Amino acid sequence: MTRSRATTIGFSAVLMWAILAFLTIASAPVPPFLLSAMCFGIGGTIGLVWTAKGAGLGLLRTVPLKAYLLGTIGLFGYHALYFTAFRLGPNASTGLIAYLWPLFIVLFSGLLPGEKLRAGHILGALIALSGAALIVLTGGEAGVSLIALALAFLCALTWSGYSVISRHFGAVPTESVTVLCLATALLSLLAHLAVEQTQWPNGALGWAAVVVLGIGPVGAAFFTWDVGMKRGDIQLLGVASYAAPLLSTLVLVLAGIAKPTWHLALATLLITAGAALAARASAAR
């Protein structure tokens, strides 16, 4: 697989995550850990079928335990924080703070062996960040929970750390994500039984939101993201991922959860320019 193809596959995860915030809000009032258990249960089951029909389930026994531990901590920790943040602050601002992880990926990636952080990557990340910041600073809703924003910020650190560290496990097959999903589902279920009161989705829309989450943003997205992080251009993916907060906000606008403003247009320009600059830096390499 070429580096460019792996990058493209990785970016498909960003497109799926564009509807993560909307679906999380639509799945209310399901508590965070129960939602995580349901979604990862669906994603893990799909992964089992895919692995069984492809490389075979025996491949999963060849994966080092430390790779499974890292992935489980990353997936479980990120989504526990993300879903909790959205239950406390179900709005666009919470999602946009959580989507600071692309900046951290770009910056942290310079610490990886064989990777070089160019000036274009840094400048592109800062320009794209200014676009994301513009949305946050001008689009915050009244009464936003500071705790929700703090949890969202921890989300960004957790996901970026997991994504960059996963580069060290480049030889681990993507099929291993199946085990990560199932382990996260189990941990989430145990946490739910320990600390939460069971509440199921409201009506057909709520159940549909949970199913779509499990199939896409909390399912297939992790498999394609794994390919991008291990074999693709990690700096370019990090900056291009700034499309996620923009697309996520646009989805909330179309759903009537957030209001359209001129700030979105300017943010679009900044995010696109930042991604283009980073792409040029990667091409120059």
Rank of each mutant, 00 (worst) to 15 (best):
I105N: 03
I105G: 01
V106S: 02
F108G: 01
G110V: 07
G110F: 08
L111T: 13
L111K: 12
L112A: 08
L112T: 10
L112H: 06
L112G: 07
P113E: 04
P113D: 04
P113Y: 12
G114A: 03
E115W: 01
E115P: 09
K116G: 08
A119Q: 12
H121I: 00
I122L: 15
G124W: 09
L126C: 04
A128H: 03
S130K: 07
G131I: 13
A133F: 14
L134W: 11
L137Q: 05
T138W: 11
S145Y: 05
L146Q: 14
I147D: 00
A148C: 03
L149I: 04
L149F: 11
L151D: 01
A156T: 04
L157V: 07
T158S: 06
T158F: 09
T158L: 02
W159E: 00
S160A: 13
S163F: 13
S163A: 15
S163V: 05
V164F: 09
I165E: 07
I165A: 13
S166R: 13
S166N: 12
R167E: 09
R167K: 14
R167N: 08
H168K: 14
G170P: 10
A171K: 15
A171E: 12
T174R: 08
E175D: 11
E175W: 13
S176Q: 15
V177Y: 11
V177W: 14
T178E: 08
T178L: 08
V179F: 15
L180K: 08
L182H: 07
T184N: 06
L186W: 13
L186C: 05
L186D: 08
L187G: 03
L189P: 00
L190P: 05
H192A: 12
L193N: 05
V195P: 08
Q197T: 13
T198W: 14
Q199L: 07
Q199W: 06
P201Y: 13
N202Y: 02
G203E: 06
G203S: 10
G206D: 00
G206W: 11
W207P: 10
A208T: 15
V211Y: 11
V211N: 01
V212G: 04
G214L: 09
I215G: 04
I215V: 15
G219Q: 05
G219D: 07
A220K: 00
F222D: 03
F223I: 09
F223V: 06
W225P: 06
D226K: 11
G228L: 01
G228R: 00
M229G: 01
